[in-house]
Simulated scan of single mutants.
Amino acid sequence: MSNTPVDNSRRRFLTIATSVVGGVGVAGAAVPFIASWNPSAKAKAAGADIKVDISKVEPGQLLRVEWRSKPVWIVRRTPQLLKELGEHDDKLRDPHSEENQQPEFARNDYRSLKKEYLVLVGICTHLGCSPQHKKDGEFEEMVEGVKDGFFCPCHGSKFDMAGRVFQGVPAPLNLVVPPYYYIDDNTLLIGSEEGAA
């Protein structure tokens, strides 16, 4: 047995130094591990709101965009189309949009914020096909007295220019109105309602 005094300060220093190095190592390993739980940039973009410039959309024209991997249609309705919307309510399954499938702002005759512009998810509410826009009287071959509308070629569902479903077709509901608002007169933001955080 030796009587040399024990150097506790050196032992304390080595313990602290080892703890600090170990803590840095744990933090270095934890940061990338925790970061891997965050969604990828591609996943974030897939669910993100989109801005759409509608300044060049002509009356009667349909603009197609993609939001959350779904087709979204923006249609600039003509005054004649708007007038015709109220003339076939008796042929529709849900003419007043009573089903809870659209934002509150779309519970009106036009199913839109501004009557001139219609914004819809372009997916049939039957089995998910994408209907075709039939215009200039072409739709009247399918529904007497209605010149423009949307026809689903998969199973024959028909929708008017407010996205309301006609009676006697497989689709049970009107086409979906996504949340959106106008940033200004020429720009839509699809994916959020104004004031929603």
Rank of each mutant, 00 (worst) to 15 (best):
G163R: 02
H88S: 01
A171F: 06
Y181T: 05
P39S: 04
R107E: 11
I123S: 08
K56T: 07
V165I: 12
S2Y: 11
T187L: 03
R111C: 07
K91G: 00
D90L: 05
K91I: 01
K91S: 08
E194W: 08
A45G: 02
A29W: 12
R107Y: 00
L92R: 01
G23Q: 05
S19Q: 11
P39V: 15
V31M: 10
D109V: 07
E84C: 06
V119E: 02
F166Y: 14
T15G: 10
F139Q: 02
L189A: 11
E66N: 12
T15D: 12
F150T: 06
G163F: 00
P32A: 00
D185A: 09
L118M: 09
S19G: 15
A30S: 10
F139G: 03
K147H: 11
N38P: 03
P79S: 07
P103Q: 02
V21P: 07
D89I: 00
G23E: 04
K70Q: 15
P103N: 04
G23M: 08
T125F: 02
G168L: 01
K51S: 08
E194A: 10
N3A: 12
E141I: 10
E66S: 08
L85H: 06
A162D: 11
L189Y: 04
Q80L: 14
S9T: 15
P131I: 00
Y117G: 04
D89M: 07
Q61Y: 04
N38K: 14
S9M: 15
I34K: 12
L85K: 06
E87T: 15
E104P: 01
F151T: 11
P103D: 01
V65D: 07
K135P: 01
A27Q: 07
I183N: 11
E99Q: 13
K135D: 09
L173K: 12
F159K: 06
S2V: 09
